[in-house]
C-alpha cells in the first residue's frame, strides 16, 4: 500500500518535472537539435540560394576535405585560437579566484570595489567590445595600460613590464613566467573577461560554512593551512566549472578569430557548405578539448559528501 503510494508520488513528480522543463525541451528540439542536424547536412552538401529557396546537392566529405587540406587560413587560425585559449583560460581562472578571495575579505569600500569589478560584465560586451577594438583613440589608450603596442614603451608600461623583469632574473622561458607576463600584458582583457567567473567563485566562497573555519582555528591551523586544506578543496568544483566556462566563453565569443572567419565564409563569401564544415570541425575540437579538460580537472575536484 505504502509502496504503491510512493510510486504514484514519483510518477506525479516526474510529470511535474517534465512540465517545468517543457519550454526548454520544445526550444531544444526545434531551435537547437533540428538546426544542428540541418547544419550537418549542409556541411555535406553544396548549397545554392535559389530564387525561392535553397538547393542542396550531396557531395560527401568534399567540404571537410577542402577546409582541412586546401584552405590556407583555417588550420593556422584554429591553432592560434587554441593557443590563445590555452594561455588565457588558466590565467583567467587564477585571476578570478584571486580577486574573489580579495573581494570576500572585509575592508572599507568593499561594496564599491565589487561594483567596479563586475562593471565590465555590464558595459564591456558585444558591440562595445567590438567598437573598442576598432577605435583609434581607445586603442592607443589600451596600449598605454596593457602594453601590446610593441615598439615604444611609455613610462607607465615600463613600470609594469614584469615580463622582461622575469626574463632578466629568472631566465627566459618557463611556463610560470609566460603566464605571468601574459597576465600583466593583457590585464585589461583578463579583467573584463573574468566577471562571471569572479561571481561564481565569490558565491562559492561565501557558501563555505563559517563553522568549518572556526573548527580549524580552534585546532590551531594557520591561515596558509586553512587556505590549502579548506578553501581550495571546498571551491574546487567551481574551478572545474569556471575553467570549462572560460573555455566556452573564449571559443564562442563573437570576437573570436574563428567565429569571425566562419561568419565571413558563410555570409561574406556565401560558401554555406564550407562554412558549415568549418563550424562542425570547430565544434568537434571544442568538444574534445572540453572533455579532456573536464576529465583532467575532475580528478582534482573534491566533492563534499
Amino acid at each position: 500500500m505504502k509502496g504503491k503510494k510512493r510510486l504514484k508520488m514519483a510518477h506525479k513528480n516526474a510529470i511535474a518535472g517534465y512540465l517545468y522543463i517543457a519550454p526548454f525541451i520544445i526550444g531544444f528540439l526545434f531551435f537547437f537539435l533540428l538546426p544542428v542536424i540541418e547544419s550537418f547536412r549542409y556541411s555535406l552538401s553544396s548549397m545554392k540560394m535559389g530564387a525561392g529557396r535553397y538547393e542542396l546537392t550531396y557531395i560527401g566529405w568534399e567540404n571537410f576535405r577542402k577546409v582541412l587540406l586546401i584552405d590556407t587560413k583555417f588550420n593556422p587560425g584554429l591553432l592560434s585560437s587554441l593557443g590563445t585559449m590555452a594561455i588565457q583560460v588558466p590565467v583567467i581562472v587564477i585571476f578570478s579566484f584571486f580577486v574573489a578571495n580579495i573581494l570576500n575579505q572585509r575592508f572599507r569600500g568593499r561594496a564599491l570595489a565589487r561594483m567596479v569589478f563586475f562593471l565590465p560584465v555590464i558595459i564591456t560586451s558585444g558591440v562595445i567590445l567590438k567598437m573598442e577594438n576598432a577605435d583609434v583613440l581607445l586603442q592607443s589608450s589600451y596600449q598605454y595600460v596593457s602594453g601590446n603596442a610593441g615598439n615604444e614603451m611609455s613610462d607607465f608600461q615600463r613600470l609594469f613590464d614584469i615580463g622582461s623583469f622575469l626574463q632578466k632574473y629568472l631566465g627566459a622561458g618557463g611556463v610560470v613566467s609566460a603566464l605571468i607576463s601574459m597576465a600583466t600584458d593583457h590585464i585589461y582583457d583578463i579583467a573584463i573577461s573574468a566577471g562571471v567567473q569572479i561571481l561564481i567563485f565569490l558565491a562559492g566562497l561565501q557558501s563555505i560554512a563559517p563553522s568549518v573555519y572556526e573548527a580549524a582555528r580552534i585546532e590551531g591551523a594557520s591561515g596558509w593551512e586553512v587556505f590549502w586544506k579548506i578553501t581550495l578543496p571546498m571551491v574546487s568544483p567551481l574551478i572545474l566549472v569556471n575553467a570549462l566556462y572560460s573555455v566556452i566563453d573564449s571559443f564562442t565569443n563573437a570576437s573570436n578569430e574563428m567565429m569571425v572567419m566562419i561568419n565571413d565564409t558563410m555570409f561574406g563569401q556565401v560558401q554555406f557548405g564550407a562554412g558549415s564544415a568549418m563550424a562542425w570541425i570547430y565544434f568537434l575540437v571544442i568538444a574534445i578539448l572540453l572533455a579532456a579538460a573536464g576529465g583532467l580537472l575532475s580528478r582534482f575536484v573534491f566533492y563534499e559528501t
Binding site: 547544419s39 566562419i262 558563410m266 563550424a279 570547430y282
Partner: peptide, 22 residues
C-alpha cells in the same frame, strides 16, 4: 536533459546560425 542544457552552451552559435536563419 541537463547535459543537453550544457550542450546548447558548448555548440558555437556559428554552427547553427545558418539553419536557424533559414
Amino acid at each position: 536533459w541537463f547535459a543537453m542544457v550544457m550542450l546548447t552552451m558548448i555548440v558555437p552559435p556559428t554552427t547553427i546560425m545558418l539553419p536557424q536563419f533559414i
